[in-house]
Structures are given as C-alpha cells and as structure tokens.
Design a protein around this nucleic acid. Structure first.
Lengths: 336, 336
DNA sequence: CTGTTAGCGCCTTCAT
DNA sequence: ATGAAGGCGCTAACAG
C-alpha cells in the first residue's frame, strides 16, 4: 500500500525552490477565501503546480497539533438510526462542512451512562465543540463539561442549563395541534404520552391541556400514560377510546403513534377519526391521508445548532450568556 | 473558556517526578491490555494518580502525528438520513468503536461528483481507511484511490473492482422472493424496477426472471422500468395491472414500493394481492400484514465491512487479493 | 513579499 | 526499570 513515502511540505518547498513558510502561506490562503498571507501571484502559482504534481496533501494531525484546532466537532444524540435524528445528523453534517469542519457522532440510546461515555470519548479525542441531545438524568454530566468545551444543546434543554440550545416550542406545538382538531369539530380529544420528567414531553401535555381549557373543554381532557414501549397498554387505551365516543387522539411521540395505529389496525377500529403525532414519516404520508402532525423544522435545528457552536468555538464572547433558540411549530397535514 | 492551559505529558512527568517516557509508557499500556512496556507497579500507580488529579487527556493530534495513525475511518454512502443507511451507519459506528476508531461520514446523494468530493475530503483529512457505497459512474474515481488507501465496498460492488466488498446476494434474494410468491399460488407476478446499470438492481431482475423461468412461468414474466421517481408511470403500471389479473407485484426497491403502494391506495385498488420490496420499515410492518420482503442483514454488513477494513489497515497482506463477501438473503413476512 | 527560527505534544529508539 | 534525545509535519512569530 503506502510504499511511496508521503510527500511533505518540505518536499514541496524544495521542489519549488522556496521556503516552507511560503508553501504554508499558500496552503492557508487556499483553505480560506484567498489572501490572508501575502504571496506573489507568481510564486503562488508555482507552488500550486508543484503541489498538484506531487499530489501533496497537508498532514492534518500536524496542522491540528500546531494550530490547536482539528476542525472536528462531536455530536451526541439518541440514535442516529432513528428517523428524526438521522435527518438532523445529515443536516448538521452539511452545515458543519460549510465551515470546513467534520463531525463525529456518538449514540446514547437515551441512556445517561452511555452519554457520559460518549461525551468523554469525544472530549478526549479533542473535538472543538459538542452538540448534545440530552437524555434523562444527563444534566450533571453535561454540566461538568461546560467549562471545558463549547456545548450547544439540541432538541431538548433542561432547567438550569446555562447552555446555548435550539429546541422546538413543544407546548405551542401541542396546543396548536389541539386547536386544529377542535376547529375540525372534535371535542372528545384524548392525549397519549409518557410519565416522564423529560421537559419536551411534559410541555406537549401542557399544551394540550391549556388549549382544551381555553376552548372550554376542560371536562373533556383525558390523558393516558402507558409504560414506555408497552403495546398492551396502548391497545387497551385504544379499545377503551373506541367504545367511548372518542373523536380524536393525540400521540405525544412518533413511537406512540406507531403503537396506537397498530392497535387500531389489529382491532379493526375506525372510530377515532383524527390522528396526530409529532413527526412526519414517508409511510404515514401514504397511509394516513389528511392526518395532522407537527413537522420538526429539522434544517433549522441543524443550522442554528451549528452556527451557535461555531460562534462559541471561534471564541466570540466565549463564556458569556447562552443563547436559547425556540423554534415555532409548523402544523402540517398529510396529502389528502 | 480554555483559560487554563491544557496539561501535557510534561506536566504529568514533572509532577510525578519521572520522565516523559514513563508517562508515555503507562499511557500506552493503558490503551492496550496492560503490559507492553515494563513499568514498575509503584510508578504506574503514582503516574495514574497524577493523571487523574490533573484531568490529563493526551493530545490526539500529537499522537496521530507521531504514530501516523489518527484512528479515524471514513464512510461514504448515499444518504445517512435514508433509513437503510442510517441503520448501517449506526452499526458501523458501533463496530468501529470496538477497535478504538471513530467514523466520519460523507454523503453522495447517489451522485458521482459528490462521491469524488467526499472521498477526496476524507482522504485529505488523513483517514486510515474507507468504506464506500459506490454509486453510478463512480468506478473510476474509486479505482483511483485504491492504491493510496485501504478501501472496502459496501452494499454494492462493480465489475472489475479489485476491492474487498460486502454485498447481499441480490439475485438469490429476488428469486427466493419470487419462489415464495409462486408457492403461495401466484402465477401472474410482475416486476417493477429501474432501467439502470447498477449491478444490484440488475441482479434482482435476473433473479426474478430466472425463478419464473425455472417454474415454467416464462410467458408470465412482465417487467416494468418506470423513470426514477416518476410517480405517474408507476401509477399507470398499477392501474394496468389491476385490470389484467395481476396477482402480485415485486418492487425492486423500497422507494418503488412506496410509490406503488401510494398508487394503489390513491386509486383504491385491492387487486394485486401480494406485495414485496427490498427492505423492512416500521410502518409497512403495521400497514401491510403478511407482506413478504427481503430483510437486509444490516448488522452483518457493518460487521464484515469494518472487519475487512481493519484487517487491511493493520496491513495484513496489504496489497494482496481482495475478499468478497456475499451475504445470503433472509426472506421475511410482516406480522399477520 | 519571503526566509529563519522555534516549537506544538507525543512516541521511540537507544542508552543507562 | 527508567531517562535523554530526536523528530513526526506544520504554523506562528519574527526578521529581513
């Protein structure tokens, strides 16, 4: 394989008859948008030619060592194979690339222990900054790094985090969704969620409750908290709803919506005439026509997170106040 | 932020009253499974304490520079937000971590130009090896790197590639799928695919044709090649099939299956009584009960790809023959 | 505009 | 079992 020794900056300098410094300057100018170091057009050309001729690639480790910046950031999230985070990742990657940075991912599977491992691994790898999707009980762990490395929270924030964050306005999402269902003439609207301390989820329930109250449907409020992943309990909820004139059900998460829909199909239930969840999906788009859902503004999530992080990495007001970005919800309907 | 200077190996050495060499040795021993360099238990302990006390993290760039290995590999694939590749990515990540390596991704969007950019970027970043999902017309680009860096092809291979690869037995997958439909009593089975030179896709069609022939259904062979992403054409195929006693349709890709299913639903067609595609999906699992499909052995894809790559990186028989791994298909049925 | 001089932090012989 | 010395490839100050 690597029989031929790597060509270094010295080789280029020698071959071009100039000093290493010049080659380095040209390199730097290339990486940015030209001109930061003054090098004559003539020598610049010559050096570029030689670099091309020898297929020269500057050694990144050396650069990183010298400059103290390896142009890598870390992203810590639940599971990159989860639909939502997969798309977020893709967008983060694209944005990061625009800054000349690359991304390394770490999956937590919603487990604080794994999050700790992941963050530590990335930190010890020397990444320049971290975008983190916190999970339950990860607050302290994250806090312990905030003086060591720039961090931006994504999708979720927690009380007392003095960190930049980009999140959806979960409460408003749920209340708008509820409002839409009420507009459609529904009154018996139920809400299926989890019993959790995860801020995101709690706010969704809040949104539902407050909208119901605002519309004078306080007595119609009905919230369920099945155990996580317990299909049987979801099925019971559905069966019960079917026999009680429930007109619509709101599921607080995509996963819950899947379970719920499965229960309906398996029991051949058609009663609940509206259906909503917190995410889009290519298949729901086909199978659930005219269904309301909250669209996650994924591109914005990614864009803002990367921008915030880059700002902190480049040190503008390093330790200063944190910026919290709350994105407005977008309620959408699948094709009719 | 980084007000406190990073603590280096020298600081640790000074503080522990030993030489850098010893600290380095301890470090190395820690990273592997103990004992490669002889250091007395006593000093080892002392050094470890000091490292912990000062929260010492060896500088990765320096290590990489010195050792010539940054323990990073690159993965070039279509689109990490695509369901199949998202899962593959996750698995590659997990496997790679077991080797102490990390992953950087690059997306091609099935575009050879982007693939070229991505590969070049990763190469210039100095990754130790590359796992690549080739796309149309990317053969030459990939070939041009094979003498420079270890490469393993994933999911797709191309004629004449002298590279390691891990792929599914696409032909067999399609023929088994066809066989299953025939077992179920179907005779008029159609196949919807693309007109392409992508080996994967072609082999699937081959599999269908050969199985039909083998079962004496040669005259029932019917293949369609709609343009990529052209919903109208797919809809026509479905409408036509519905009026002609077609009993089953096989879609060569997941995307085609989605389009096809959409056409059926929009036109309220129930005629085609079997339905199959080349991937699983959480929603198909719910909406298409008893549907046959080919399950991609994603974990195996990842495991083998990473293993092959690591073998090449560590230089065992560097330039020698390439290993081609062809995974057997697993035909599955969604819940009934 | 160009060259010289110092290291960045670490690993690796080679001595002791 | 431990230490000294050299250098990986590059960039950032300075000089000219």
């Amino acid at each position: 394989m690597n029989t031929e020794k790597k060509v270094t900056i010295n080789d280029i300098a020698r071959e071009a008859g100039v000093s290493r410094t010049l080659v380095s300057s040209v390199l730097c100018n290339m990486q940015l948008g030209e001109k930061r170091y003054r090098v004559s057009e003539e020598t610049t050309q010559k050096i570029k030619e030689v670099m091309a001729k020898y297929d020269y690639h500057p050694n990144n480790s050396a650069r990183a060592l010298r400059s103290g910046n390896n142009r890598i950031i870390g992203v810590v999230l639940s599971d990159i194979s989860n639909r939502f985070f997969a798309e977020v990742s893709r967008n983060i990657e694209d944005w990061t690339n625009k800054y000349g940075y690359m991304v390394i991912f770490s999956n937590t599977d919603e487990n604080a222990g794994k999050l700790a491992e992941g963050v530590e691994l990335l930190y010890s790898r020397g990444v320049q900054g971290l975008i983190i999707v916190p999970c339950l009980h990860s607050e302290k762990i994250i806090d312990s790094y905030k003086s060591k490395i720039p961090i931006v929270l994504l999708d979720r924030d927690y009380a007392g985090s003095e960190l930049c964050s980009v999140v959806l306005d979960n409460k408003k999402s749920a209340s708008e969704l509820t409002g839409r269902l009420i507009e459609r003439g529904h009154r018996n609207i139920e809400f299926v969620s989890y019993s959790t301390t995860l801020k995101n989820i709690i706010e969704r329930e809040d949104g539902y409750r407050s909208e119901m109250r605002k519309s004078g449907l306080e007595t119609n409020i009905k919230v369920h908290h099945p155990e996580y992943g317990n299909y049987g309990q979801v099925e019971e909820i559905i069966l019960h709803a079917a026999g009680n004139g429930t007109e619509a059900i709101i599921f607080a998460t995509y996963h819950l919506a899947l379970l719920g829909r499965r229960a309906m199909i398996h029991n051949n239930i058609k009663v609940p005439c509206a259906f909503a969840c917190f995410n889009n999906s290519d298949t729901f788009d086909i199978y659930e026509r005219g269904m309301l859902y909250v669209k996650q503004p994924i591109e914005k999530f990614a864009k803002h997170a990367v921008e915030l992080l880059m700002k902190r990495i480049s040190g503008e007001k390093a330790g200063s106040e944190c910026e919290k970005i709350v994105l407005p919800p977008e309620i959408e309907t699948t094709e009719i």
